[in-house]
Amino acid sequence: MTILAGWPLFITLLFIALGTMLTRFLPFWIFPAHRPIPIFVRRLQLLLPSAAIGLLVVYCLRGINVFTGSRGLPELIAIAAIVLLHRLFKNTLLSIAGGTAVYMLLVQLVF
Protein backbone atom coordinates (compact mmCIF):
# COMPACT_ATOMS: atom_id res chain seq x y z
CA MET A 1 0.00 0.00 0.00
CA THR A 2 1.41 3.40 -1.02
CA ILE A 3 0.52 6.30 1.24
CA LEU A 4 0.55 9.94 0.11
CA ALA A 5 3.38 12.05 1.56
CA GLY A 6 4.59 15.66 1.56
CA TRP A 7 2.64 18.25 -0.44
CA PRO A 8 0.09 15.84 -2.02
CA LEU A 9 -0.76 14.63 1.47
CA PHE A 10 -0.98 18.20 2.83
CA ILE A 11 -3.16 19.39 -0.07
CA THR A 12 -5.50 16.38 0.31
CA LEU A 13 -5.72 17.12 4.04
CA LEU A 14 -6.52 20.79 3.32
CA PHE A 15 -9.30 19.88 0.85
CA ILE A 16 -10.81 17.54 3.46
CA ALA A 17 -10.65 20.34 6.07
CA LEU A 18 -12.22 22.87 3.68
CA GLY A 19 -14.97 20.45 2.65
CA THR A 20 -15.77 19.75 6.30
CA MET A 21 -15.90 23.47 7.13
CA LEU A 22 -18.16 24.10 4.14
CA THR A 23 -20.71 21.53 5.35
CA ARG A 24 -20.67 23.11 8.82
CA PHE A 25 -20.98 26.79 7.79
CA LEU A 26 -23.25 26.56 4.74
CA PRO A 27 -26.65 26.44 6.52
CA PHE A 28 -25.74 29.56 8.52
CA TRP A 29 -24.76 31.42 5.34
CA ILE A 30 -27.98 30.41 3.57
CA PHE A 31 -30.18 31.38 6.55
CA PRO A 32 -28.43 34.37 8.23
CA ALA A 33 -29.54 35.43 11.71
CA HIS A 34 -31.06 38.73 10.66
CA ARG A 35 -33.63 37.10 8.37
CA PRO A 36 -36.67 35.15 9.65
CA ILE A 37 -36.35 31.35 9.28
CA PRO A 38 -39.02 29.79 7.00
CA ILE A 39 -41.64 27.68 8.79
CA PHE A 40 -40.56 24.44 7.04
CA VAL A 41 -36.96 24.94 8.18
CA ARG A 42 -38.21 25.60 11.72
CA ARG A 43 -40.09 22.29 11.62
CA LEU A 44 -36.99 20.55 10.25
CA GLN A 45 -35.12 21.69 13.36
CA LEU A 46 -37.33 19.34 15.38
CA LEU A 47 -37.27 16.42 12.92
CA LEU A 48 -33.73 16.31 11.56
CA PRO A 49 -31.67 15.43 14.66
CA SER A 50 -33.11 11.93 15.08
CA ALA A 51 -33.46 11.34 11.32
CA ALA A 52 -29.79 12.28 10.83
CA ILE A 53 -28.64 9.80 13.49
CA GLY A 54 -30.79 7.09 11.85
CA LEU A 55 -28.99 7.84 8.59
CA LEU A 56 -25.63 7.60 10.38
CA VAL A 57 -26.39 4.15 11.77
CA VAL A 58 -27.34 2.86 8.30
CA TYR A 59 -24.21 4.55 6.91
CA CYS A 60 -22.01 2.66 9.36
CA LEU A 61 -23.63 -0.65 8.40
CA ARG A 62 -23.72 -0.02 4.63
CA GLY A 63 -20.94 -2.49 3.85
CA ILE A 64 -22.82 -5.53 5.15
CA ASN A 65 -23.71 -8.22 2.61
CA VAL A 66 -26.37 -10.57 3.96
CA PHE A 67 -25.58 -13.25 1.35
CA THR A 68 -21.82 -13.67 1.75
CA GLY A 69 -19.10 -13.75 4.40
CA SER A 70 -20.34 -13.35 7.95
CA ARG A 71 -23.75 -12.14 6.63
CA GLY A 72 -23.84 -9.21 9.05
CA LEU A 73 -24.16 -11.50 12.05
CA PRO A 74 -21.34 -9.90 14.11
CA GLU A 75 -22.94 -6.47 13.62
CA LEU A 76 -26.40 -7.81 14.49
CA ILE A 77 -25.19 -9.53 17.67
CA ALA A 78 -23.10 -6.53 18.76
CA ILE A 79 -26.03 -4.13 18.26
CA ALA A 80 -28.27 -6.49 20.24
CA ALA A 81 -25.66 -6.38 23.01
CA ILE A 82 -25.65 -2.56 22.90
CA VAL A 83 -29.45 -2.39 23.15
CA LEU A 84 -29.42 -4.84 26.07
CA LEU A 85 -26.60 -3.01 27.92
CA HIS A 86 -28.28 0.32 27.38
CA ARG A 87 -31.63 -0.94 28.70
CA LEU A 88 -29.93 -2.39 31.79
CA PHE A 89 -27.47 0.35 32.73
CA LYS A 90 -28.35 3.49 30.72
CA ASN A 91 -24.63 4.31 30.62
CA THR A 92 -23.64 5.65 27.21
CA LEU A 93 -19.95 4.83 27.44
CA LEU A 94 -20.50 1.37 28.90
CA SER A 95 -22.88 0.52 26.05
CA ILE A 96 -20.38 1.76 23.43
CA ALA A 97 -17.40 -0.03 24.99
CA GLY A 98 -19.37 -3.24 25.63
CA GLY A 99 -20.79 -3.40 22.11
CA THR A 100 -17.37 -2.75 20.59
CA ALA A 101 -15.77 -5.45 22.74
CA VAL A 102 -18.44 -7.98 21.68
CA TYR A 103 -17.89 -7.06 18.03
CA MET A 104 -14.10 -7.32 18.28
CA LEU A 105 -14.31 -10.73 19.93
CA LEU A 106 -16.75 -11.96 17.26
CA VAL A 107 -14.72 -10.81 14.23
CA GLN A 108 -11.39 -11.92 15.71
CA LEU A 109 -12.34 -15.27 17.23
CA VAL A 110 -15.65 -16.53 15.80
CA PHE A 111 -16.24 -15.31 12.23
Binding site: T23, V41, A51
Partner: peptide, 21 residues
Protein backbone atom coordinates in the same frame (compact mmCIF):
# COMPACT_ATOMS: atom_id res chain seq x y z
CA UNK B 1 -11.21 13.97 -1.69
CA UNK B 2 -13.36 17.12 -1.54
CA UNK B 3 -16.34 15.33 -3.11
CA UNK B 4 -16.05 12.39 -0.70
CA UNK B 5 -15.78 14.85 2.22
CA UNK B 6 -18.92 16.72 1.15
CA UNK B 7 -20.83 13.45 0.90
CA UNK B 8 -19.62 11.92 4.17
CA UNK B 9 -20.14 15.20 6.03
CA UNK B 10 -23.39 16.24 4.36
CA UNK B 11 -25.16 15.40 7.62
CA UNK B 12 -23.55 18.56 9.08
CA UNK B 13 -26.00 20.49 6.90
CA UNK B 14 -28.77 18.89 8.95
CA UNK B 15 -27.02 19.90 12.20
CA UNK B 16 -26.65 23.48 10.96
CA UNK B 17 -30.33 23.62 10.03
CA UNK B 18 -31.23 22.30 13.49
CA UNK B 19 -29.06 24.97 15.19
CA UNK B 20 -30.10 28.09 13.23
CA UNK B 21 -31.98 29.57 16.20
Amino acid sequence: ALAVTLMVNARHLFYGLSMLG
